[in-house]
Amino acid sequence: MALKGRLQDFSTTQLLNLVNMARKTGKLSLNDQTDQGAMLHFKDGRLIHATNNADEGHLAAMLYKVGKLTEDQVNVIKKQYNGSSDRVMGKYLMDARLVSRADIVQGVKDYMLNIVYDLFTWNDGTFLFEQDILPAKDRITVPLNLDNVILEGSRRIQEAVVLQDELPDLSTIALKITDKPLRDVKLTQDDWRVISHIHPRNSVKQIAQNNNMDEFQIRKIVYGMLQAGIVELIRPEGLQQKRAKPPVSRRGKKMAAQSPAEKRSVVTKLIDRIKRI
């Protein structure tokens, strides 16, 4: 018998608890109001596979999403192995020494967890649990105990509430690196990914998109760096201009783009400055 309902009535946490306690086997489909969807497969109460409708769902796309493959590598693999099973693709990836078996297992695991943790923040939408439906046999499955997933997910719900309060609409804020001395600051790879995209014109939302990060991830990283005094919040340059500028004239548009002379002037200034170091 299928279980179906609305997430505002029966939350993701409760659903996973149910699957865990009853040691269920089957497929759980969730959809939010914006038609964003996710599919989780369980076997004997353990999560074994997760996909969402935003990604392509094959192994290479999963490994790209969690940083184990580059975009170029994925494009090459897609051309050669489009339509192949994940197992065939996995074998190719290992033979080509692009990833190891451990990388694949960890990558699929991280990918699944990213999807599931995101679901904890969904307050609205529908779910459908269909008994005894397993993922296609060609999919690579990694069994995960739901106890830890539920614990971490619940913790994230609490954090998400705080982060939502601390950081308003992400499309209306940008970041600026402060002058605080950064001696002994230890940053993670994800922190660096964010820092490398900091620019007055890039909103935090754009930085997240450029780094394939979900809203929770970027909020957490930015909040951490704000607390450490590494960055401060500013309004994105484009946004300020949009509000401050009168209706756009053709001349105004032309002025906005840097002319060759202005570009040369920037380089000349840099030359003068470096000479004085």
């Binding site: 690196i177 790879q189 660096w192 490398s196 200034k269 400055r273």
Partner: peptide
């Protein structure tokens, strides 16, 4: 270095050079 180094040279109030 497992991530990257990051250095800065300020030119003036309007221009900053970052070295990655």
């Amino acid at each position: 270095t497992v991530a990257m180094d990051f250095g800065r040279i300020t030119v003036d109030d309007d221009l900053v050079l970052y070295l990655f």
